[in-house]
Protein backbone atom coordinates (compact mmCIF):
# COMPACT_ATOMS: atom_id res chain seq x y z
CA UNK A 1 0.00 0.00 0.00
CA UNK A 2 1.21 3.49 -0.81
CA UNK A 3 1.85 6.27 1.64
CA UNK A 4 -1.14 8.34 0.54
CA UNK A 5 -3.37 5.32 1.09
CA UNK A 6 -2.18 5.04 4.69
CA UNK A 7 -2.49 8.74 5.30
CA UNK A 8 -6.04 8.73 3.97
CA UNK A 9 -6.92 5.76 6.16
CA UNK A 10 -5.47 7.30 9.30
CA UNK A 11 -6.68 10.87 8.77
CA UNK A 12 -10.18 10.46 10.30
CA UNK A 13 -8.79 8.73 13.42
CA UNK A 14 -6.07 11.30 13.90
CA UNK A 15 -8.55 14.14 13.51
CA UNK A 16 -11.07 12.62 15.96
CA UNK A 17 -8.38 11.90 18.54
CA UNK A 18 -7.08 15.43 18.09
CA UNK A 19 -10.54 16.83 18.74
CA UNK A 20 -10.81 14.94 22.04
CA UNK A 21 -7.30 16.03 22.95
CA UNK A 22 -8.11 19.71 22.39
CA UNK A 23 -11.28 19.26 24.46
CA UNK A 24 -9.36 17.59 27.31
CA UNK A 25 -6.57 20.16 27.33
CA UNK A 26 -8.93 23.16 27.16
CA UNK A 27 -10.94 21.85 30.10
CA UNK A 28 -7.79 21.79 32.23
CA UNK A 29 -6.15 24.95 30.94
CA UNK A 30 -9.25 27.14 31.29
CA UNK A 31 -10.33 25.34 34.45
CA UNK A 32 -13.87 24.75 33.15
CA UNK A 33 -16.25 23.59 35.90
CA UNK A 34 -17.27 19.94 35.52
CA UNK A 35 -20.99 20.71 35.50
CA UNK A 36 -20.48 22.99 32.48
CA UNK A 37 -18.15 20.90 30.35
CA UNK A 38 -16.56 17.78 31.77
CA UNK A 39 -13.28 16.65 30.14
CA UNK A 40 -13.55 13.58 27.89
CA UNK A 41 -11.49 11.48 30.30
CA UNK A 42 -14.20 11.95 32.91
CA UNK A 43 -16.95 11.35 30.34
CA UNK A 44 -15.43 8.03 29.32
CA UNK A 45 -14.90 7.05 32.93
CA UNK A 46 -18.57 7.79 33.61
CA UNK A 47 -19.61 5.91 30.45
CA UNK A 48 -17.76 2.86 31.68
CA UNK A 49 -19.39 3.15 35.10
CA UNK A 50 -22.89 3.43 33.58
CA UNK A 51 -22.10 1.02 30.75
CA UNK A 52 -25.10 -1.27 31.30
CA UNK A 53 -27.52 1.69 31.47
CA UNK A 54 -26.03 3.18 28.32
CA UNK A 55 -26.08 -0.17 26.55
CA UNK A 56 -29.71 -0.95 27.43
CA UNK A 57 -30.97 2.52 26.60
CA UNK A 58 -29.00 2.50 23.35
CA UNK A 59 -30.70 -0.72 22.34
CA UNK A 60 -34.11 0.84 22.98
CA UNK A 61 -33.23 3.91 20.93
CA UNK A 62 -31.76 1.76 18.19
CA UNK A 63 -34.90 -0.35 18.03
CA UNK A 64 -37.31 2.62 17.92
CA UNK A 65 -35.12 4.36 15.34
CA UNK A 66 -34.90 1.34 13.06
CA UNK A 67 -38.61 0.57 13.39
CA UNK A 68 -39.49 4.13 12.40
CA UNK A 69 -36.88 4.11 9.67
CA UNK A 70 -38.16 0.91 8.06
CA UNK A 71 -41.69 2.25 8.11
CA UNK A 72 -40.33 5.34 6.38
CA UNK A 73 -38.57 3.20 3.75
CA UNK A 74 -41.71 1.28 2.86
CA UNK A 75 -43.98 4.28 2.93
CA UNK A 76 -41.42 6.56 1.26
CA UNK A 77 -40.86 4.12 -1.60
CA UNK A 78 -44.56 3.72 -2.27
CA UNK A 79 -45.26 7.43 -2.09
CA UNK A 80 -42.13 8.30 -4.10
CA UNK A 81 -43.09 5.94 -6.90
CA UNK A 82 -46.65 7.27 -6.88
CA UNK A 83 -45.46 10.87 -7.05
CA UNK A 84 -42.94 10.07 -9.78
CA UNK A 85 -45.49 8.02 -11.68
CA UNK A 86 -48.03 10.66 -12.53
CA UNK A 87 -47.92 14.42 -12.72
CA UNK A 88 -51.43 14.60 -11.28
CA UNK A 89 -50.50 12.72 -8.13
CA UNK A 90 -47.40 14.91 -7.89
CA UNK A 91 -49.44 18.09 -8.19
CA UNK A 92 -52.00 16.84 -5.69
CA UNK A 93 -49.63 15.64 -2.97
CA UNK A 94 -46.63 17.93 -3.15
CA UNK A 95 -47.94 21.05 -1.37
CA UNK A 96 -49.31 18.97 1.52
CA UNK A 97 -46.07 17.03 1.80
CA UNK A 98 -43.92 20.15 1.83
CA UNK A 99 -46.19 21.75 4.42
CA UNK A 100 -46.11 18.62 6.52
CA UNK A 101 -42.34 18.48 6.33
CA UNK A 102 -42.10 22.08 7.48
CA UNK A 103 -43.80 21.30 10.82
CA UNK A 104 -41.12 20.76 13.48
CA UNK A 105 -41.61 17.18 14.57
CA UNK A 106 -41.07 18.04 18.23
CA UNK A 107 -44.40 19.86 17.98
CA UNK A 108 -46.12 16.66 16.89
CA UNK A 109 -44.85 14.56 19.81
CA UNK A 110 -47.43 15.85 22.34
CA UNK A 111 -50.21 14.78 19.98
CA UNK A 112 -48.64 11.36 19.55
CA UNK A 113 -48.38 11.03 23.31
CA UNK A 114 -52.02 12.03 23.60
CA UNK A 115 -52.94 9.25 21.19
CA UNK A 116 -50.53 6.49 22.12
CA UNK A 117 -49.37 7.32 25.61
CA UNK A 118 -45.81 7.67 26.87
CA UNK A 119 -43.37 5.05 25.56
CA UNK A 120 -41.92 3.63 22.39
CA UNK A 121 -44.78 4.22 19.95
CA UNK A 122 -44.41 8.02 19.84
CA UNK A 123 -40.65 7.60 19.35
CA UNK A 124 -41.14 5.19 16.45
CA UNK A 125 -43.71 7.43 14.82
CA UNK A 126 -41.59 10.55 15.23
CA UNK A 127 -38.62 8.76 13.66
CA UNK A 128 -40.90 7.69 10.82
CA UNK A 129 -42.41 11.14 10.26
CA UNK A 130 -39.06 12.91 10.18
CA UNK A 131 -37.28 10.46 7.89
CA UNK A 132 -39.76 9.58 5.15
CA UNK A 133 -39.66 12.91 3.36
CA UNK A 134 -36.12 12.71 1.91
CA UNK A 135 -36.88 9.19 0.66
CA UNK A 136 -40.02 10.33 -1.16
CA UNK A 137 -38.29 13.33 -2.72
CA UNK A 138 -35.28 11.34 -3.90
CA UNK A 139 -37.24 8.45 -5.38
CA UNK A 140 -39.56 10.87 -7.16
CA UNK A 141 -36.59 12.84 -8.49
CA UNK A 142 -34.97 9.69 -9.81
CA UNK A 143 -38.12 8.82 -11.70
CA UNK A 144 -38.73 12.34 -12.96
CA UNK A 145 -35.24 12.77 -14.46
CA UNK A 146 -35.62 9.86 -16.90
CA UNK A 147 -34.60 10.94 -20.42
CA UNK A 148 -37.59 11.47 -22.71
CA UNK A 149 -35.72 9.70 -25.54
CA UNK A 150 -35.48 6.52 -23.48
CA UNK A 151 -39.21 6.69 -22.90
CA UNK A 152 -39.80 7.19 -26.65
CA UNK A 153 -37.65 4.18 -27.52
CA UNK A 154 -39.72 1.96 -25.25
CA UNK A 155 -43.11 3.42 -26.14
CA UNK A 156 -42.44 2.95 -29.84
CA UNK A 157 -41.95 -0.73 -29.04
CA UNK A 158 -45.36 -0.88 -27.40
CA UNK A 159 -44.24 -0.58 -23.77
CA UNK A 160 -46.86 0.21 -21.15
CA UNK A 161 -46.24 2.71 -18.37
CA UNK A 162 -45.65 -0.24 -16.04
CA UNK A 163 -42.93 -1.65 -18.35
CA UNK A 164 -41.17 1.69 -18.50
CA UNK A 165 -41.24 1.99 -14.72
CA UNK A 166 -39.96 -1.53 -14.09
CA UNK A 167 -37.29 -1.57 -16.79
CA UNK A 168 -36.01 1.99 -16.55
CA UNK A 169 -37.64 4.22 -13.94
CA UNK A 170 -37.19 2.16 -10.81
CA UNK A 171 -33.65 0.84 -11.48
CA UNK A 172 -32.68 4.37 -12.43
CA UNK A 173 -33.98 5.83 -9.19
CA UNK A 174 -32.20 3.26 -7.00
CA UNK A 175 -29.03 5.35 -6.57
CA UNK A 176 -31.21 8.27 -5.46
CA UNK A 177 -33.05 5.94 -3.10
CA UNK A 178 -29.92 4.56 -1.47
CA UNK A 179 -28.43 8.03 -1.16
CA UNK A 180 -31.56 9.13 0.67
CA UNK A 181 -31.28 6.24 3.14
CA UNK A 182 -28.10 7.72 4.60
CA UNK A 183 -29.89 11.01 5.24
CA UNK A 184 -33.04 9.28 6.47
CA UNK A 185 -31.35 7.06 9.06
CA UNK A 186 -29.60 10.04 10.65
CA UNK A 187 -32.87 11.96 10.72
CA UNK A 188 -34.64 8.97 12.25
CA UNK A 189 -32.22 9.16 15.19
CA UNK A 190 -33.08 12.81 15.66
CA UNK A 191 -36.77 11.92 15.65
CA UNK A 192 -36.64 9.09 18.16
CA UNK A 193 -34.33 10.94 20.57
CA UNK A 194 -36.43 14.11 20.43
CA UNK A 195 -39.50 12.05 21.25
CA UNK A 196 -37.71 10.22 24.06
CA UNK A 197 -36.64 13.47 25.70
CA UNK A 198 -40.25 14.67 25.67
CA UNK A 199 -42.13 11.55 26.62
CA UNK A 200 -40.55 8.19 27.35
CA UNK A 201 -39.31 6.11 30.23
CA UNK A 202 -36.54 4.36 28.35
CA UNK A 203 -34.05 5.18 25.62
CA UNK A 204 -31.00 7.44 25.33
CA UNK A 205 -33.16 10.56 25.12
CA UNK A 206 -34.83 9.71 28.40
CA UNK A 207 -31.49 8.85 29.97
CA UNK A 208 -30.07 12.23 28.94
CA UNK A 209 -32.97 14.02 30.54
CA UNK A 210 -32.73 11.99 33.75
CA UNK A 211 -28.95 12.56 33.95
CA UNK A 212 -29.42 16.27 33.45
CA UNK A 213 -32.04 16.42 36.19
CA UNK A 214 -29.60 14.67 38.55
CA UNK A 215 -26.78 17.00 37.50
CA UNK A 216 -24.84 14.03 36.12
CA UNK A 217 -23.32 16.22 33.40
CA UNK A 218 -20.60 13.71 32.35
CA UNK A 219 -23.32 11.11 31.71
CA UNK A 220 -25.21 13.61 29.54
CA UNK A 221 -22.13 13.90 27.37
CA UNK A 222 -21.69 10.14 27.52
CA UNK A 223 -25.20 9.77 26.09
CA UNK A 224 -24.37 12.19 23.30
CA UNK A 225 -21.26 10.22 22.42
CA UNK A 226 -23.25 6.98 22.41
CA UNK A 227 -25.71 8.60 19.98
CA UNK A 228 -22.89 9.78 17.75
CA UNK A 229 -21.41 6.28 17.65
CA UNK A 230 -24.78 4.74 16.77
CA UNK A 231 -25.29 7.37 14.06
CA UNK A 232 -21.88 6.76 12.49
CA UNK A 233 -22.44 2.99 12.55
CA UNK A 234 -25.82 3.21 10.82
CA UNK A 235 -24.57 5.71 8.28
CA UNK A 236 -21.61 3.47 7.45
CA UNK A 237 -23.87 0.45 6.96
CA UNK A 238 -26.04 2.30 4.47
CA UNK A 239 -23.07 3.86 2.71
CA UNK A 240 -21.63 0.38 2.11
CA UNK A 241 -25.05 -0.89 1.00
CA UNK A 242 -25.30 2.00 -1.46
CA UNK A 243 -21.94 1.16 -3.01
CA UNK A 244 -22.84 -2.50 -3.26
CA UNK A 245 -26.25 -2.02 -4.83
CA UNK A 246 -25.60 0.83 -7.22
CA UNK A 247 -21.91 0.78 -8.02
CA UNK A 248 -22.67 1.50 -11.67
CA UNK A 249 -23.95 4.95 -10.80
CA UNK A 250 -20.63 5.93 -9.23
CA UNK A 251 -18.65 4.92 -12.28
CA UNK A 252 -20.94 6.02 -15.08
CA UNK A 253 -22.45 9.23 -13.75
CA UNK A 254 -26.18 9.36 -14.22
CA UNK A 255 -26.01 12.27 -16.64
CA UNK A 256 -24.73 10.24 -19.55
CA UNK A 257 -26.89 7.30 -18.62
Amino acid sequence: MTRTWWIERLAPWVFTLGLFLVWEVSCHVFDVPRFVLPPPSLVFQEMWYFRSAIWNNSLVTLWTTLAGFFMAVVFGLILGIAVGWSRTIYAALYPVMVGFNAIPKVAVVPILVLWFGIGEVPAILTAFLISFFPIVVNVATGLATMEPEMEDVLRALGAKKMDIMLKVGIPRSLPYFFASLKVAITLAFVGSVVSETVAANRGIGHMLLAAQANFEVPLVFGGLIALAVLGIGMYAIFAVLERRMTGWAFRSGLNNA
Binding site: E147, V153, A156, K167, V168, P171, W248
Partner: peptide, 18 residues
Protein backbone atom coordinates in the same frame (compact mmCIF):
# COMPACT_ATOMS: atom_id res chain seq x y z
CA UNK B 1 -51.52 5.32 -30.90
CA UNK B 2 -47.85 4.43 -30.47
CA UNK B 3 -46.82 1.76 -32.98
CA UNK B 4 -45.54 -1.36 -31.32
CA UNK B 5 -42.68 -2.43 -33.52
CA UNK B 6 -40.52 0.59 -34.41
CA UNK B 7 -36.79 0.65 -33.75
CA UNK B 8 -35.49 4.06 -32.71
CA UNK B 9 -32.07 5.59 -32.13
CA UNK B 10 -31.15 9.11 -31.12
CA UNK B 11 -28.17 11.41 -30.88
CA UNK B 12 -27.64 10.10 -27.33
CA UNK B 13 -27.16 6.37 -27.17
CA UNK B 14 -29.59 6.21 -24.19
CA UNK B 15 -28.23 2.87 -22.99
CA UNK B 16 -29.06 1.72 -19.48
CA UNK B 17 -25.86 1.91 -17.39
CA UNK B 18 -26.88 -0.87 -14.99
Amino acid sequence: GPLKFVGMAFQNATLLPW
